[in-house]
Amino acid sequence: MAYNGDSDHSPAQQSRMPTPIKLLVAGGFGVGKTTFVGSVSEIEPLSTEETITAASIGTDDLTGVGDKVTTTVALDFGRITLDPQHILYLFGTPGQDRFWFMWNELSDGAFGAVVLADTRRLEDCFPALDFFERRGTQFIVAVNEFDTGFHYEPEEVRAALDLKPNIPIVCCDARDPRSATLVLVTLTKHLMSAAASSVR
């Protein structure tokens, strides 16, 4: 832990900061977002409080200037060091509806999202699906299989969610690091094929 007080960082070294890659984990309240983030993170799941200034609830997005309110939102996130030049940050979106405005800010610069679904309360993930579809953020759906939930086949879930055929649906156990990491692998492959097919 010796701290080298001498300036031994060359300017070239200083300019080479890693690239942060942001992915989101969304879904209804209590669907397992925090668990998911915690099980893939290399560090203990962390939480921070961010102060947000947002148009007050009930003010439509399009009106532009509404009353502004300042709110503190607790955010869970995790980190995976992918290689010396890339760090993955995984942010759980606030589950409560009244924090919907936080999603815009979190979605800026996000590469993609996992929408977690619970088959006992599928409708809870509708707001997240709508949000990402409208915003054009690429996402996949991961069904977090709770022990007490009935097992549905992915295609049944697809029909129930009215999802396009190109959006992957996987089942997972958010508590299991390998299972949760596989969800992120599926998301990444989806992002790669979506990127390849979009002409930019």
Partner: peptide, 14 residues
């Protein structure tokens, strides 16, 4: 967010 180099680093790291 469609940069294939970054997405590949993400995939490999995962």
């Amino acid at each position: 967010t469609t940069d294939q180099t970054v997405l590949e680093a993400l995939l490999n790291g995962l």
